[in-house]
Design a binder for these strands. Structure first.
Length: 260
DNA sequence: TAACATGTTACGGT
DNA sequence: AACCGTAACATGTT
């Protein structure tokens, strides 16, 4: 159930397998996972919520969707979707995830500049892309993996609170400084998420996600279960998060109730 | 305990 | 064509 920062943590934990040969393959994936046997893992990479295992001429792409999980040198009770066995009984096990092969060079398949966790992250390009979407909602663009690969619903809610922008603000109505903040915080909050997750302290740092009152001013937070085109949960403070622009949809829907 | 949710894709209808 | 809504997938948490 990971957003981008969790995938970065997985990538770092999986680094120990780079350069080692896959000795055993198991799993209920419908892909031709048998081809992985006796192949040497060349690199582990990530792009947004994608975890990538790179071999000589192809790579394996793992996407955990909502319920996926992994174990390193351990197993769960369930059958893995894909399990890779290495020497000394070491193993990488992936559960209830999407497994796909990517043929050829990963650099040809992925645009690293849109990955908020990447060294190649390109904020100027993100701002440019957003300027071309004036009618889109702030809550929707943050979840757009073509713009902010790795951002998920938790990061979305926390970023919007941090920059004091209402989730239904329209992008075209944001002052240039706010748009720049949105882009900056998409990355900066993701790195905070990463550090807190590593320390097993992520949830206690939530400001609005799944919360009922605003830590800034004690306002009862607003909650909507299906907000925006993405139809995802939104938590926000009507006192400190300003709504820029207006949409008919937002004004006609009256189901904003207290969270929790 | 039964809902629910850190996500995405496919498909049918408009 | 573009867009929208719904279903499907699958499991740990509350």
């Amino acid at each position: 159930m990971p957003e981008g920062p969790s995938i970065v943590i997985l990538r770092e934990l999986a680094q120990q397998f780079v350069g080692r040969k896959v000795l055993h393959v198991e799993g209920n994936s419908k892909q031709d996972i048998g081809r992985l046997r006796n192949r040497t893992l060349r690199a582990v990479r990530s792009w947004g919520k994608h975890f990538l295992l790179e071999f000589d001429d192809f790579s394996v792409r793992i996407h955990f969707l909502l319920f996926g999980s992994w174990r390193i040198n351990e197993t769960k009770a369930a059958t893995p979707r894909l399990g890779l066995g290495f020497s000394r009984g070491d193993a990488l096990n992936f559960y209830s995830c999407s497994v796909r092969f990517i043929e050829g060079d990963l650099d040809a398949a992925y645009d690293w500049g849109v990955d908020v966790m990447s060294e190649a992250w390109d904020p100027a390009r993100a701002r440019r892309t957003l300027r071309a979407k004036p009618d889109a909602l702030a809550a929707d663009v943050l979840l757009d993996q073509d713009v902010f690969a790795g951002v998920g619903n938790i990061i979305k809610n926390e970023v919007l609170h941090r920059i004091r922008v209402h989730p239904e603000s329209t992008i075209g109505a944001l002052p240039a400084r706010k748009l720049a903040q949105l882009v900056t915080e998409a990355r900066d909050y993701s790195f905070d998420f990463y550090r807190w997750k590593q320390a097993f302290q992520l949830k206690k740092h939530y400001q609005v996600h799944t919360k009922t009152t605003c830590p800034r001013d004690g306002t009862l937070l607003s909650y909507r279960k299906h907000l925006g085109r993405a139809q995802r949960r939104a938590f926000w403070c009507d006192t400190c998060q300003r709504r820029y622009g207006t949409t008919e949809a937002s004004m006609s829907v009256a189901d904003g109730a207290a969270a929790g």
